[in-house]
Design a protein around this nucleic acid. Structure first.
Lengths: 195, 195
DNA sequence: ACCTGAACACCGTTCAAGT
DNA sequence: ACCTGAACACCGTTCAAGT
């Protein structure tokens, strides 16, 4: 038998929890109180744990679509490069554009970068899969840019992941640093380019 | 009258608290439980708050010397450059060396970088003064390196502070990134150099 | 199947009571 | 002058009891 559709009240509670979490996490960051989420959703605390046994499960529900979109973005750029015949495919440009968007996504909420990096060593996290897919898609864009001679050969996909998260982390730590996000991005990016 | 020497038991408690905090913060990072610190010091919880009203007061007590030393390091290098007559003063080298040490100091404990960056907007923090002195000393080393044509003119002291903290943050987030600390430092540093 | 909230073991912070 | 620990208002997580 195919999976049954969930009971109507369960589905409703799940929706309410996600809406409440989206608000609260946007306001207070990844560390927002789960009790507050349940309260705002007007749902019992146990109900939250039933739907999202772990904080990472909740975050994955909030961010999954965005991360999938980022992976697809990279995969699309990759295919465009392979198909590049008449038009000059520009692997460097493709990587920069993607990296900018990735940096924004990795810092969608305050303290999200730390959660994403933690994912590296906890394969059971609900965020692990979508995070890995993004890293791999970005890694292939990196390789193309390196083969085109635009990026230093000793840069690894992990370096990219680390630096993008670090840039997102900085910007979320202080308003005066948030202003300098693009400037800092350019400085770091220039460190990755072949000279 | 000059300030009286503290009562012997008060001095003893302060020492015990600092010793316990040094251990615990080294083990668990800046967020270590203050209750645990008091317990390990075998001291009442109120005693901890009397000596260190704020977590930042405790951290300043733990790190003050180290930060002062870093500021002095930069100031020494600065004076050496001014006095540079026969020997070739090397402002770039002086800045890199200092920045390496600064990056290590800013990440002396897990999550310390976040506390230091927070200092930017909270002038009442106990960490503010020593942090500011470091930033200013580093800023003068930066200026010298820029005047020597070694570093891009659009890099600010705040950029330096932000990037050093970001590098320290990365290294403390995951063992596999800690291994790449020097490599990442070189990549970022090369982004700051004039090309 | 699913929901609820009390219960447990923790926090940070304050403050009345002691010496 | 300094120390102590109970008290308060919060957490995250679990689980017996309900529908």
């Amino acid at each position: 038998m195919p999976p049954r559709t969930p009971r109507a009240d369960a589905q409703r509670n799940r929706d309410r929890l996600l809406a409440a979490a989206a608000e609260l996490v946007a306001e207070e960051g990844v560390q927002a109180s789960l009790r507050d989420v349940a309260r705002r959703a007007e749902v019992g605390l146990g109900t939250l744990y039933r739907h999202f046994p772990t904080r990472d499960d909740l975050l994955e529900a909030l961010l999954g679509r965005r991360f999938e979109a980022l992976a697809e973005h990279a995969e699309r750029a990759e295919r465009a490069e392979h198909a590049g015949t008449t038009t000059t495919a520009d692997p460097e440009r493709a990587l920069v554009d993607w990296l900018q968007e990735f940096t924004l996504g990795a810092a969608a909420y305050r303290d999200l970068p730390a959660a994403l990096v933690a994912t590296l060593h906890s394969p059971d996290s609900a965020l692990h899969a979508s995070c890995l897919r993004m890293r791999e898609a970005g890694g292939r864009l990196l390789l193309a840019a390196q083969e085109a001679g635009a990026v230093r050969p000793e840069v690894t996909p992990l370096d990219l992941f680390a630096l993008a998260n670090a840039l997102g982390w900085i910007a979320d730590q202080s308003p005066s640093l948030a202003e300098r996000r693009e400037h800092l991005f350019r400085l770091v990016w220039d460190g990755l380019r072949r000279r």
